[in-house]
Simulated assay, not measured.
Amino acid sequence: MSINRTELEEIAALAQLNIPDQQVGHITESLNQLMAMIEHINDANTEAVAPMAHPNDAWQLVRADEVTDTSHKAALLALAAHADDDHYLVPKVIE
């Protein structure tokens, strides 16, 4: 499969790209080289290759979901100038 100038212009229009006329030949040639590489890869025999989700056959260790830090609410509320059991108390600034 090769890409010609008309197809390149259609692809550029769909992608909303403005390709200068002096670069059309170079881009067409580069895309044709890329298509040749893809065809070469497609020719490889992959019948004996099993599908895989990731190239590394590894899995991640997951730690146990345990509480490791306790609440510091009481200590932090004790530092406030004014506080009740659960909230910082601040003066009203909007009337």
Rank of each mutant, 00 (worst) to 15 (best):
T46V: 15
H82Y: 05
S71K: 05
E39P: 03
L89S: 01
I27S: 01
V67P: 00
H26Y: 13
L8A: 06
Q22T: 04
A81V: 06
H87K: 05
N18G: 06
P51K: 03
E10T: 14
D85H: 01
D84Q: 08
I19N: 00
A78Y: 02
R5L: 10
N42C: 07
L89K: 05
D85T: 00
Q23S: 07
Q23M: 05
M52C: 09
V93R: 00
T70V: 09
I41C: 09
R5I: 09
A83D: 00
L34G: 11
D86Y: 07
D43Q: 11
V67K: 09
N32Y: 04
I94D: 08
A80M: 01
Q60T: 15
A12T: 08
S2K: 11
H82V: 05
I19V: 14
A81L: 06
D57A: 06
P20T: 04
K92P: 01
Q60N: 12
Q33T: 09
A12L: 13
N42I: 04
L61S: 13
D65I: 10
E47T: 15
V93D: 04
D86G: 02
R63S: 11
A12G: 08
L14H: 14
I94K: 01
V62I: 12
S30A: 13
D84A: 07
L61T: 10
A36R: 11
Q23F: 05
W59K: 10
N18P: 03
A75T: 03
T28C: 14
W59G: 08
N56G: 07
P55R: 05
E29I: 09
N18R: 14
I19W: 01
I11T: 06
N56F: 10
H82F: 05
Q16N: 15
D86V: 02
H26S: 14
E10R: 13
D84S: 04
E7Y: 03
Y88F: 09
N42D: 14
A48L: 12
H40A: 13
L76R: 07
P91R: 03
D21Y: 02
Q60A: 15
N32A: 08
T28V: 15
D69A: 10
D21V: 08
E39V: 10
I94H: 02
E39Q: 15
A53V: 12
L76S: 02
I94G: 00
L79P: 01
L79A: 06
A74S: 08
Q23C: 03
T6I: 10
